[in-house]
């Protein structure tokens, strides 16, 4: 897959609109270069490097949809590598490996803080909820994805899913969230009874 020239503005707009294929293209484009660099620089395995690079793409997406990243001053590659590097350093720190001062160097300041700010779901209830989402049917699944994950407005969702207006989408989303809340409460109650 080749992309001769990346229009950064267009790329950010596509990601904002939930275009995951654009992310996949970027991912594929720098993947082997990053892995080669990461294996050599941080002495990480191929699999660890691949995992870190995937997390960097998730951070990149998250920063764009949450409006933390509106404009890229550096190249996409520089930004991605900087984010990935910080994830790698955190991972290495966590594993209590020794770091040389040389690797903590001059990446864009925003990329560093963005990577650190990003929090993955880590409590049991969130994992339980993730399992529930997997079982959700359409259009509920798409509505929740577009609203909470892609950060689209109700009107944008109405347009994308061909609903009459944003009010219908909003009502559908409220119903779906209320059902999920009830399911979580019921499950937690069952667990409490077991204890």
């Amino acid at each position: 897959m080749t992309i001769a020239f990346i229009n950064k503005k267009k790329l950010i707009e596509q990601i904002k609109q939930g275009n995951e294929d654009a992310l996949v293209k970027i991912y594929v484009r720098y993947k082997s270069e990053f892995i080669g660099w990461s294996v050599k620089k941080f002495n990480l395995s191929h699999e660890e490097s691949e995992d870190i690079y995937q997390d960097a793409i998730l951070v990149f997406r998250n920063n764009i949809v949450s409006n933390k990243l509106i404009e890229l001053n550096s190249s996409v590659k520089t930004y991605l590598f900087a984010v990935a590097k910080n994830i790698a350093l955190k991972k290495i720190n966590r594993s209590a490996r020794q770091l040389s001062d040389e690797v903590v160097d001059k990446e864009p300041a925003t990329a560093k803080s963005d990577a650190i700010d990003y929090v993955m779901a880590d409590n049991e209830r969130q994992k339980l909820i993730a399992n529930m989402i997997e079982k959700l049917k359409e259009p509920n699944r798409s509505i929740l994805k577009m609203y909470y994950y892609q950060n689209l407005s109700m009107s944008e969702i109405a347009e994308k899913l061909n609903y009459k207006n944003d009010k219908v989408v909003k009502a559908q989303k409220v119903r779906c969230m209320n059902e999920l809340k009830k399911m979580v409460r019921d499950l937690c109650l069952k667990d409490d009874l077991k204890d």
Partner: peptide, 22 residues
């Protein structure tokens, strides 16, 4: 928690897509 769970799920889904990409 619901919002974090939703984001967690779709992150996982996207990560799978990336893995499959290459």
């Amino acid at each position: 928690d619901l919002i974090l769970g939703i984001n967690h799920f779709f992150d996982k889904e996207l990560k799978e897509k990336l893995k499959e990409a290459n």
